[in-house]
């Protein structure tokens, strides 16, 4: 793990999301509760919708383009839909957001 401080948790509204640019593309960081956060790929595998712009409910997000619902925990599409989004380790410590950068850095080092 290579925890990178990406900002204060308060920068994301509860049930909102912000993106982080990485060399793997945009990562969406979701805040589902005061201290509960998840990070996934920002791209819906269906038609490329920006998941960070979706409505966040429970521990799920609904893609703004065609209402595909993904679990933020497993990355799996819910209901009858199929598809998986990448998930990344992220946590809150003392009000700061820490994203595991090892998966992005690995490629940079290569």
């Amino acid at each position: 793990m290579n925890w990178i401080d990406i900002g204060a948790v308060d920068e994301i509204p509860v049930r909102g999301s912000r993106i982080v640019k990485t060399r793997d593309g945009c990562v969406a960081v979701f805040r589902t509760g005061p201290d509960e956060v998840f990070a996934t790929s920002d791209r819906c595998p269906h038609k490329g919708g920006p998941l960070s712009e979706g409505i966040v409910h429970d521990r799920k997000v609904t893609c703004p383009l065609h209402n595909m619902v993904y679990s933020l925990e497993t990355g799996k599409a819910q209901g009858a839909d199929e598809g998986v989004i990448e998930t990344y380790p992220v946590r809150v410590e003392a009000g700061r957001l820490l994203l595991d950068g090892s998966r992005f850095a690995a490629r940079g080092a290569a």
Binding site: I4, E11, K21
Partner: peptide, 14 residues
């Protein structure tokens, strides 16, 4: 306005 920008840009920081 800040909310319309990415929270962080790991490429730049790298």
């Amino acid at each position: 306005a800040r909310r319309f920008h990415p929270l962080a840009d790991l490429n730049v920081e790298a």
